[in-house]
Amino acid sequence: MGMLSRSPWVIHYDGSSCNGCDIEVLAALMPRFDVERFGVVNTGNPKHADIFLLTGSINEQNKPVVLNIYNQMPEPKVVLAVGICATSGGIFRECYNVLGGADKVLPVDVYVPGCSVRPEAIIDAVVKGVGILEEKRAALRNNLKSAVSQA
């Protein structure tokens, strides 16, 4: 197992949600589930984060915010859409201002359904995300190598 998968730092952003999923995200950090066992840290800084954990749907107002956070994260990075709101818009889908799920603006790597999503599912998603993180790093490396050999 590489270092990346032992220390995933997460940034959590709440789009347009009912807050149900956010409470479950925090529950995952609390003593009962304690995701820090796996080295997961909830950071508030996109520049330190490896995993972008997005809850809630995307609307016109938070679209630039979400993009801004994503663009500030250093490579390799993955995006988790947590909760049915983030995967498709959920119950807010029909609202006049809602664009839909996170994949309307970002390349989502892991979709986690549930309303609200359970802490176990969130932990599972982070573990999946970590695997993708490793793949992305390997891909970045290969790109770099081929770029060097071509030059």
Binding site: R6, S7, G39
Partner: peptide, 16 residues
């Protein structure tokens, strides 16, 4: 009241 990360977690963090 949590279990906490492994003892070598800071090394993993820096390695990452």
């Amino acid at each position: 009241g949590r279990i906490g990360p492994p003892l070598f977690q800071p090394f993993y963090d820096v390695g990452k």
